[in-house]
Design a protein around this nucleic acid. Sequence first.
DNA 1: TTGAAAGCGGTACCAA
DNA 2: TTGGTACCGCTTTCAA
Lengths: 343, 343
Amino acid sequence: MSDTAKQPQQPAERPVPTSADVARLAGVSRATVSYVLNNTSAVRISEPTRVRVREAAQELGYVPHAAARSLRAGRTRIVLLPSGHIPVGPLYSRFLNELQWALRRLDYTVVQYGSLGLGADEAARAWAELRPVAVISLGETALTAQGVELLKRSGARAVVTLGPHRVEGAHSLPMDQREIGRCAVGHLLERGHRRIGVVVPSEPGLELFSTPRLAGARKAVAGTDAVVEPLELAYDESSAAALARRWRGLGLDAVFAYNDEYAMLLMRALQDAGVEIPGETAVVGADNLLLGNLLRPRLTTVNIDMVEGRHLAELVDAAVRDPSEVGERRDLMGATLVRRESS
Amino acid sequence: MSDTAKQPQQPAERPVPTSADVARLAGVSRATVSYVLNNTSAVRISEPTRVRVREAAQELGYVPHAAARSLRAGRTRIVLLPSGHIPVGPLYSRFLNELQWALRRLDYTVVQYGSLGLGADEAARAWAELRPVAVISLGETALTAQGVELLKRSGARAVVTLGPHRVEGAHSLPMDQREIGRCAVGHLLERGHRRIGVVVPSEPGLELFSTPRLAGARKAVAGTDAVVEPLELAYDESSAAALARRWRGLGLDAVFAYNDEYAMLLMRALQDAGVEIPGETAVVGADNLLLGNLLRPRLTTVNIDMVEGRHLAELVDAAVRDPSEVGERRDLMGATLVRRESS
DNA sequence: TTGAAAGCGGTACCAA
DNA sequence: TTGGTACCGCTTTCAA
């Protein structure tokens, strides 16, 4: 632990063992090593040899070099998930974990690649260098038509985007955030509300979700006599207090607050400003967080049914096996209202 | 868009362009292509040639093959971040994003590798196949001494673990969750409380955090006449209600509730059971979530000061450049109490 | 200023 | 049943 001992920590910078080292130690050829360690069925290797090879590999701590392998094979089994940007909620991370788990079971190497601070085409290029066999863009990083083209030219057999944007050339799976806005506002309409605020977070990065949710809200009121009013709100108490202060002037009788967290924030501010909920203003959130249930009144919310990660994994696998065979799919997301006390 | 057109989507499965293709198109050798695209300073290439090469690369949509490059170079610039398991909070994801951003600025390729469902040594092996130059284990996946050894033998020049466990051979950075428990319970002691409950979530995976937080709480009361009582609690309302029901029988006058979410859950259940807060029982959370401020009484909490991702990135970079030069570092995490109304 | 060629670590064909 | 060897894409001497 101390400083004086100065042990030779890297004994002569021992080189990383290769299959040639294993072969040498086992007294066989590199080919044989490969056969044994990959259980190549087209070739029969005697049991004693197998044992010798495996022991040698064990002894050396041999681990095959993924880069060399995929270089030779001409393709990788990498599925790349661009990540970053958005602080994801529990729903999303459960979905992600499921997806990764399922992909690994299908023998893919799942690699999340953080692309924070890269432009769309820069990012696509960086991804392409890894020669992923598939890319699943969860909408966090924009993907352009050129980006998709580049990835495909680099060997990606499936480029899948989730979310509202359709990207030319990619296989876009609908994951329609609009449905959430439609569901929330539809409920408010049913309950007789006519002047409906829709919270749009001012935090950057959330437009990806907030814009379609607002659009869905607009769609819900289309053809009725109700109106939708966008309300910018930052995720802090002073912003909420400011909004609450001018609330009565807005003349709204209901609000869809983007999600449960913003809803909780706004509801508290409204209550502190003397606005009665749901009597004077009804409030609806989204995400069905447990915490929303702790407020009084309990928060009405939209529950989001995310598709199972396994489904998406199978879909990607199918696309990789035969890129032409992928048809249109149903929406990956469902939305159902959970009525509680705030509406 | 329709089905009848059946365009030749993959015109004869066009092969991925290589530097040889670029060389051919530009009418130069592969060596020249490499020189130009890497701006090799040791070699002077005429401007006209440079232009021809770049145009050719552009036209073909050439992207270098990372695997081939690192195979030749004998080392990668991959920093591997094992990920998965734990649903991370906003604090943690901000830290992660910062870390990734900083590492990329130092020209590393950051790869998050999901290892859900893999054992410690399986996972280490899978990581080693990628030949990462550094591994930063955030404590999510256990790392054994053998695992570290394997990674180092595979060329990893830095294996860093964050968290309470010291792993033989790895460079363990203290990120002492105990400090949080000590801070919370220390505050409660100061306020005169003597029988202090400490919530331990029953959700699997959280032991990594809950165990040291409990240990810190225990350390805080050591040598005083106060006692600490572990309380198992699941993150749902029925579990909280059950705990609240038997609350008075426990005879506790304060509780450190693991984090703000559990604290909010428990506090609401206690209030519903008629327990007055903070009069009868004081409540302290941790994480300093905005939402805790919305409750009445406002939740007292422990604010966690996470080290900046940039710091860790620089530390890793230093370790990669010279693995022997890395000394001990101060704790990566600080904890300060934010007193509000619930204590 | 440019090109020829070796070699990184595997895999798989063909021969023995 | 095993070994020899070509080759995947790229970088980097060494020669021209």
